[in-house]
Design a binder for these strands. Structure first.
Length: 495
RNA sequence: GUCCCCAUCGUCUAGCCUGGUCUAGGACACCGCCCUUUCACGGCGGCGACAGGGGUUCAAAUCCCCUUGGGGACGCCA
């Protein structure tokens, strides 16, 4: 058991963002690969943007991916776990306040009476004059008398951190040493006028008190890390190790916006992707295995292979095509039973009554589709004909396969051959079709494709003999008969 | 505007730290061919990159600098 403790500290804003998922997974992986502890802490300090429903939605994302926490808040009926709670930032307000006040008493923070409007105006002026927008430090050197006087006036104040002189270095596990001149930071607020802590204070206090040893997070926090290091030092907490990884970029290379489809990891569930696929893909979005030329990983395998050292410094774009490929790989790796269980609900959701078939039959159905499915959702396209009559035949295929000379004769031959089969299975069907081709001297495809059209209404799907066996003799013959009368109704055939 | 980070095929990357083994390897995508009942899978092959410029060095994708490009941060949001 190591003492590694890492955390994911998302702000519950509605759903689990793909970038948050990636950060969470790397932290989880570090914890799991070292026998450490993975903590979930909700950064719900911003009351206006927090809602229990958001928490639920986000945690469902984690749950789907299989990234569970060792310590975390009570949630969805489960009790709080861990000795460092509470795990909701909003419930740690007094601690944050206390630490802020401690900094104040130690002279490491000071009261600032500037109004929001003043600050904003200042910032605007700076931006217009193309200066960096920073707090002027106006209240930094207020005398105790001035402070008392302002307070007596009833002016509200915030607490600002007194940024020390010098330089701050972050020994980042991914980025290397990153140096900041402290001048680059203004005296940032740590406690709002209403007494709530500001993010920077809250994270540092919480990370400190929760004994977090490693902070892996997006490099949008790299500049914040400077503030945090100063705060850790001022508060007298030991410094955790930092690792800032690049953000997930969308397909055009921008920060993956939360408005984009796919920003929510559950969008992918919706689209028929396996959680295994997302795990694998997200891992690859910034990490490579030491073992060269390998892309397929399960969560469990990742657990054994993950090291921070193999995390990449450069940002990666999201590539849908590669995700699709990976999804196919993972689908093919499922057992037929697993695939069945994942695919049946999708059929049901699409109004197909799977209850009319046995479990065993559904397993076989999943099996014959397995090699073909790019996503789980494609099951509808590949197997709907098993559960309902054919509404219409694919027009293009009709033109190509049925609206031709000899189409009817061909179908009748097929009908005859099929009707004559006594033991109805893949092999006997195949033999019957082969006999047909032998007799006609034509390729197998000449018989297979029209039959597929008759049986499924489509040009694509599972292997014909497999599907026909599963459809059953009676139903298959009924559909062939129906197809023949349809072809007849087509009327004259062009030459 | 200021600061920070990044930079190898279209995309994800290996290699870079510890220069020579790199006429730069793999994967996705794309294009051929093969297998084949379509699609998919699989097999084989092809296309395709060290951003540019300066150094350092006998030797640079690998080290240094500049430029360019991309990203991020500058809230009483987190």
């Amino acid at each position: 058991m190591s003492n590694v403790r890492c955390r994911i500290a998302p702000s519950p804003s509605g759903f689990l963002h793909i970038g948050t998922a990636k950060t969470a997974m790397y932290n989880w992986l570090l914890a799991k690969s070292t026998g450490g502890t993975f903590v979930l802490r909700l950064e719900d300090t911003d009351a206006e943007r927090t809602d229990e429903q958001y928490v639920q939605a986000m945690c469902e994302g984690f749950r789907w991916l299989g990234i569970m926490w060792d310590e975390g808040p009570e949630f969805g009926g489960e009790p709080e776990r861990g000795d460092f709670g509470p795990y909701r930032q909003s419930q740690r307000r007094e601690l944050h306040r206390g630490e802020a006040l401690r900094l104040l008493s130690e002279g490491k923070a000071y009261k600032c009476f500037c109004s929001k409007e003043e600050i904003e105006a200042e910032r605007e002026r700076a931006t217009q004059e193309k200066r960096p927008p920073r707090y002027s430090g106006k209240c930094r050197n207020l005398t105790p008398e001035q402070t008392a006087a302002l307070e007596a006036e009833g002016r509200s104040f915030v607490l600002r951190f007194r940024v020390p002189e010098g330089e701050t270095v972050i020994h980042d596990l991914i980025q290397g040493d990153v140096r900041f001149e402290n001048k680059e930071y203004d005296d940032f607020i740590i406690l709002k006028a209403n007494g709530d802590p500001i993010f920077h204070l809250a994270v540092v206090v919480d990370d400190g008190h929760m004994k977090i040893t490693h902070v892996i997070r997006g490099d949008d926090h790299l500049t914040n890390a400077g503030r945090h290091v100063m705060l850790f030092n001022a508060l007298g907490y030991p410094l955790p190790k930092f690792a800032h990884h690049p953000l997930v970029l969308d397909e055009v290379g921008r920060k993956y916006s939360k408005r984009l489809h796919g920003a929510n990891v559950l969008d992918w569930r919706e689209d028929g992707y396996l959680p295994e696929t997302l795990i694998n893909y997200i891992a690859l979005l910034g990490w490579t295995s030491e073992e060269a030329n390998r892309e397929f990983f399960t969560l469990d395998e990742l657990k054994g292979l993950f090291t921070i050292e193999r995390l990449s410094k450069s940002p990666a774009r999201f590539d849908r095509k590669k995700l699709d490929w990976l999804n196919g790989q993972h689908i093919r790796r499922l057992s037929q039973e697993e695939l069945r269980d994942r695919v049946v609900p999708i059929l049901q959701k699409n109004g197909l009554d799977t209850g009319i078939k046995s479990e065993e039959w559904l397993t076989r159905m999943a099996g014959i589709c397995q090699e073909k499915l790019p996503t789980l959702n494609h099951i509808v396209e590949y197997a709907d004909f098993f559960f309902q009559d054919i509404a219409e035949y694919d027009a293009k295929s009709v033109l190509k396969l049925w609206k031709t000379d000899g189409a009817i004769e061909r179908m009748r031959n097929i009908q005859q051959a099929m009707a004559a089969i006594e033991v109805w299975n893949h092999d006997t069907l195949k033999a019957a079709f082969e006999a047909l081709t032998a007799a006609s001297g034509e390729g197998l495809g000449k018989f297979v494709h029209p039959t597929r059209l008759a049986l499924t209404g489509k040009p694509v799907g599972p292997g014909l003999f497999e599907l026909t066996e599963l459809l059953g003799k009676e139903e298959s013959l009924a559909r062939i008969a129906k197809a023949i009368s349809y072809i007849e109704s087509l009327g004259g055939t062009p030459s």
